[in-house]
C-alpha cells in the first residue's frame, strides 16, 4: 500500500537561519499523497505551505527528514536529477503566473516541452491540446502582456499540464485573480484532475480554493495541525 504513495514525507524539517537562531519553516511533517488527489495545504502566512511545495517540487531540499516523490528521495537528488524530476513529473503554477514575457502564449506553453525529446509536430499537438483545455487556443499568438490576469493564469495552467505530469503544485494560484477568474481556473484544474488523474496540491488560504479541495491539510507553525478529507461543497462555476 505504501508504494502507491506519489509523495511521502517523513519527519520533514526545514529550518532557515535568522541571526543566531533557527526558524522552523517545517517541523516534522509527515504527509502522504496518492495519485489523483486534489489536496490543499492551508494555514496562515509562514506556516510552511510554500516551503512544503518547494521541497516536494524538488526546488529545495529538507534540512532533515525525508521526502520521497515518485520514488525519488529529494534530499539525495543532485541539482541535475532534481531538474529532471521537475521536468518529467512536476508542473508548477505560481501566484504571479511567471510567464516568460518575450514569448507568445504558444511558446510559453511549449517551453516546458523543449527539454523533452519530442518532435515539433508532437509538441504542437500537445500545446494546442493544452490551450484547448484552458480555452485559450485563439490567443496562442498573444504575448503575456496582452492577456488579463485570468488568462495569464490559464496559460500557466496549460504550461503546467501540457506535459501531463503526475503532480501539479499550485502556490496561491488564485491570489491575483478576481472571483470569476478564480472559479474558472479552479474549474479547469478540477476537470484536468478528473480527466487526466493528475495530482494537484495547492498552497492556499483562499476560501474559494478550499471549497474545491477533497483533502485539506492545515499547517500551523510548520506542523500538520489537521489533515481532513472534505466533501465537495461547490458545484461547477463555484456556486454553492
Amino acid at each position: 500500500m505504501e508504494n502507491s504513495f506519489l509523495i511521502k514525507t517523513q519527519d520533514l524539517v526545514k529550518t532557515y537561519p535568522m541571526g543566531h537562531t533557527k526558524i522552523f519553516a517545517l517541523n516534522g511533517v509527515n504527509l502522504n499523497f496518492r495519485p489523483g488527489e486534489f489536496a490543499g495545504l492551508v494555514g496562515p502566512s509562514g506556516s510552511g505551505k510554500t516551503t512544503f511545495l518547494n521541497i516536494v517540487g524538488s526546488l529545495d531540499s529538507p534540512t532533515s527528514g525525508s521526502a520521497v516523490v515518485m520514488g525519488k528521495k529529494i534530499e539525495d537528488l543532485s541539482h541535475k536529477q532534481a531538474a529532471w524530476l521537475r521536468n518529467q513529473n512536476i508542473g508548477f503554477i505560481f501566484q504571479t503566473f511567471n510567464l516568460l514575457p518575450v514569448y507568445t502564449v504558444y511558446e510559453n506553453v511549449e517551453f516546458t516541452l523543449l527539454l523533452l525529446k519530442m518532435s515539433a509536430e508532437e509538441r504542437k499537438d500537445k500545446v494546442m491540446q493544452a490551450l484547448e483545455w484552458v480555452k485559450l487556443a485563439d490567443r496562442a499568438k498573444s504575448k503575456p502582456a496582452q492577456l488579463s490576469g485570468g488568462q495569464s493564469q490559464r496559460v500557466a495552467v496549460a504550461r503546467a499540464i501540457v506535459k501531463e505530469p503526475s503532480i501539479i503544485l499550485a502556490d496561491e494560484p488564485t491570489a491575483n485573480l478576481d472571483a470569476e477568474n478564480s472559479f474558472n481556473i479552479l474549474d479547469t484544474m478540477e476537470e484536468l484532475n478528473r480527466e487526466l488523474g493528475t495530482t494537484f496540491i495547492f498552497a492556499t488560504h483562499d476560501e474559494k480554493v478550499i471549497k474545491y479541495l477533497r483533502r485539506k491539510i492545515t499547517l500551523v507553525d510548520g506542523k500538520v495541525a489537521k489533515d481532513e478529507a472534505l466533501e465537495q461543497k461547490k458545484v461547477k462555476g463555484g456556486n454553492q
Binding site: G57, F111, R159
Partner: peptide
Amino acid sequence: RKEMGTMMALGFTRSK
C-alpha cells in the same frame, strides 16, 4: 531572476 527561477521550475538546469 524570476524568469530564471521559472525556467528552473520547468526543468532547466543552472548550466543550461
